[in-house]
Design a binder for these strands. Structure first.
Lengths: 109, 109
DNA sequence: TGAATATTCAACCATATGGTTAACAATAAG
DNA sequence: CTTATTGTTAACCATATGGTTGAATATTCA
């Protein structure tokens, strides 16, 4: 089993635990965007979005490039990949688990 | 893109954001265990472990079977699979992202 | 210079974690 | 019946989120 840095996964999974932040990432996968552009589809205040972006930034999920007065935000791949890798270690477990579920369903029919 | 239920992912990623809880899951992947067995390797109080297990339970990551005075905890696959699936939607992005990194490194050499 | 725009920061509030210790409940065993 | 054992619950404390509104900052534009 691969070893994963503790606190990075903490921050990554913590950042992913909020639906607004997951929506921001889903927007950013389409390409870079400014804070204002990111905020527009959401009903909460710009300040709230700003705080969400700071959390994503601290988790390394996002990078910020200042151009004049606008901040351009872009998605950063590696923490997502790490989280994916961590979960992947459980793949055997759920394969097995779903197989035995399938087995149960089969025996029932 | 597949749609994912909002609040379930909230709870799943939230539960995964703590290293103690991730360690509990890593133990449980080896098989069912009692609360006491789960607590033993950790230095924090049993009450703290009990609360962690409740959070895992609320997130559906774990099930509890009471046998007499002991509680037997077992891992539940599907929320992990859902989280894995959500992250998998970003696979194209990080493939591309890592490719372009590789490209950069190549051009530099 | 002065006004508009893009964002952050500060202060505040409510709720959730993450931990503690102490008390309670339920079951097992002497 | 009394005492251990296994866990949960309660009360408490500190810190992080998630949101608000209002003020401060930094650019850009007229």
């Amino acid at each position: 089993m691969v070893e994963y840095s503790i606190s990075e996964l903490d921050a990554t999974f913590g950042a992913l635990s909020d639906p607004t932040r997951r929506a921001l990432l889903a927007t950013l996968v389409l390409g870079e965007a400014t804070v204002g552009e990111l905020a527009r589809p959401h009903e909460i205040s710009l300040a709230a979005i700003s705080k969400h972006i700071q959390i994503l930034e601290r988790a390394g999920l996002v990078r910020r490039r200042r151009i004049g007065r606008t901040h351009h935000i872009s998605l950063e791949a590696s923490p997502l990949l790490d989280a994916f890798g961590w979960l992947g270690a459980y793949q055997d477990f759920w394969d097995e688990s779903l197989d035995s579920l399938a087995g149960l369903l089969e025996r029932r029919s």
